[in-house]
Design a protein around this nucleic acid. Structure first.
Lengths: 196, 196
DNA sequence: CGGCAGCAAACAAACGGTCGTTTGGCGAGC
DNA sequence: GCTCGCCAAACGACCGTTTGTTTGCTGCCG
């Protein structure tokens, strides 16, 4: 007897959709593909979902929520701004790698959502980015980061590092998520700090 | 009499394909869409191309060649390793922004190529990345960069910054490509250099 | 100068196949 | 006995591609 890790059939659907959308892209993965992965006919999927786009939203939203929850928690920890930025980066990289599929869809495929649904994801992205900006601004005020740091650009740099992980990380890699996050944080924070 | 900026009809096809593939994705853009953009019927396109995949390869390869030409030239300039890294980053960001469409396809859609064609793009990507690694290694030997710098990870960081530009840059932005490249270089190089 | 060959470009129509989605029925388990 | 999960079949639309034909030019030859 197979024990499912999913609490419901729908969760299983979303998980397989995440895998397929990340591998082949939203438009490149068909309902046929998804049904085959689950051992069903494609019409049968519509007992569980409203439309293909619903699935895309669920996958992208799941990715967004995971990044937000862990990232915001890390940024709100006790410690100096550099310490919290380090924790944030670590959380981001770990989340990206633990949930590579949903993360890839969150980064790559969310833009194919219709405007109404896309907005909901965009809001979460904006909140996430502003968290980084706030952290950097706070670090400036506390004197940890250079006063002439361009906060918007630095935030983009931090997120670029984290967001591109999905594009090159292979699960059998030598480096662990923790090592990657720590390495990135070392280089970036040193670049943000006051010089000698 | 209208003067075309394209040397041939095929170039015009590739340019429109770049735009559509970057906007809607390779699988999301149909030959119908492309034909309409050119004022043709979709069958007529096949007088100029062999297949849709040919177009994807042409667009992705065009992007790859542009990055390679400018990036390798910048890395081979006279100057110290930090200066050349700065030139490289500037060239990359400028290229990414000047050719946002082809660059986006080069970053996002190239993976949908069949293995034979994908390999040709992958080779160019590998060459590009190794150029950054060599530059960083040289900077270590010359004493400009920290001896304990993880060169592979630092190279990934540089490329992440540059590769993610297409994902957030909007042409009406306040920051010029030069300013972005310079800002990234300031932060990154400071992070790579020997401490006090 | 007239006519005709050669050419590239595009149309018109069709190919087999796949797309996402809907509907009606049916069997198994609470 | 009723609900839930799935099947079977079908829907119209669209997919990428092929084919045969028409169009409008261009340059050459008589």
């Amino acid at each position: 007897m197979a024990i499912s890790v999913h609490s419901s059939r729908r969760d299983e659907l979303v998980a397989q959709a995440a895998r397929l959308f990340s591998e082949r892209g939203y438009h490149g993965a068909s309902m046929q593909d998804l049904a085959e992965a689950l051992g069903l006919l494609r019409g049968s999927l519509y007992a569980h979902i409203g439309s293909k786009e619903d699935l895309l939203f669920d996958v992208a939203n799941q990715g967004a929520v995971r990044f937000l929850e862990r990232g915001l928690a890390a940024a709100a920890e006790a410690g100096t701004p550099p310490e919290r930025l380090r924790a944030f980066l670590g959380a981001h990289v770990e989340t990206a790698i633990e949930h590579l599929d949903a993360g890839t869809v969150f980064m790559n495929e969310w833009r194919y959502l219709s405007p109404a649904l896309r907005t909901k994801i965009q809001d979460k992205r904006d909140l996430y980015e502003s968290t980084v900006r706030d952290l950097l601004t706070e670090g400036q005020r506390s004197g940890h980061f250079r006063a002439d740091l361009d906060v918007s650009l630095a935030a983009r740099l931090v997120l670029s590092a984290g967001n591109w992980v999905y594009a090159w990380y292979k699960p059998d890699k030598e480096l662990s998520p923790q090592e990657i996050g720590r390495g990135y944080a070392d280089m970036l924070i040193r670049g943000f700090e006051e010089g000698p």
